[in-house]
Amino acid sequence: MITSAHEQLRHDHDYLVKFLALGNSGVGKTSLLYQFTEGCFNSQFTSTVGIDFKEKRLVHRCSVTGREQGVHLQLWDTAGQEKFRSLTTAFYRNTMGFILVFDLTNEQSFLDIRSWMEQLRTHAYCESPDIILVGNKVDLTEQHVVSEARARDAAFKLGVPYMEASAATGFNVTACVLALVDAVLLRMNRVVDDTRLTLGKTVSPDDEVTSVCVC
């Protein structure tokens, strides 16, 4: 029963969700998204120019309602250099969730989070869009210049969830994206008919975030 439902969802997604990755140049946006969609690390990326597109389909179980929903994720990767901001901000409007990335080994990329947040508040669809702050390159422990406590504190003050990840090892990469998927779907479900496409399963609301990737 569940399997066939999954099969069906594979072809017929319920939600089209658009994410955008942003953050300073060189923090690893492209590598994170590549790790998420392809499941491996590619060190041979050149700088992103303009905006790049990736996609992934998955079945997601909502952390609150336990509802399973097919999700078609459109992932937009942006160029980090400031010069491209007038281009990339044009794409903020249609974006539902933002993956804001900084590099744990690069102080400046962490300091610039504040200006990225300002950009988001100005150009996104609403004043408080769904965002996840990701500290990338957690595997390069020796080179860290931003401590976890400091990053958590900053995230708390900005009012956004924070996770550390490594595009190189794949650690936490999927979890970051799925946490954002969860937040976006919760927001969407608030305005969508409750009866739509529940799979008839009752799940306690405090279940953990569990998702099944079908791709």
């Binding site: 140049s25 060190s43 990326f45 050149t46």
Partner: peptide, 13 residues
């Protein structure tokens, strides 16, 4: 800094 960051990852092949 930007140039120095981009050059090593330029055309890695």
């Amino acid at each position: 800094r930007q140039i120095h960051m981009d050059i090593p990852r330029m055309a890695p092949l």
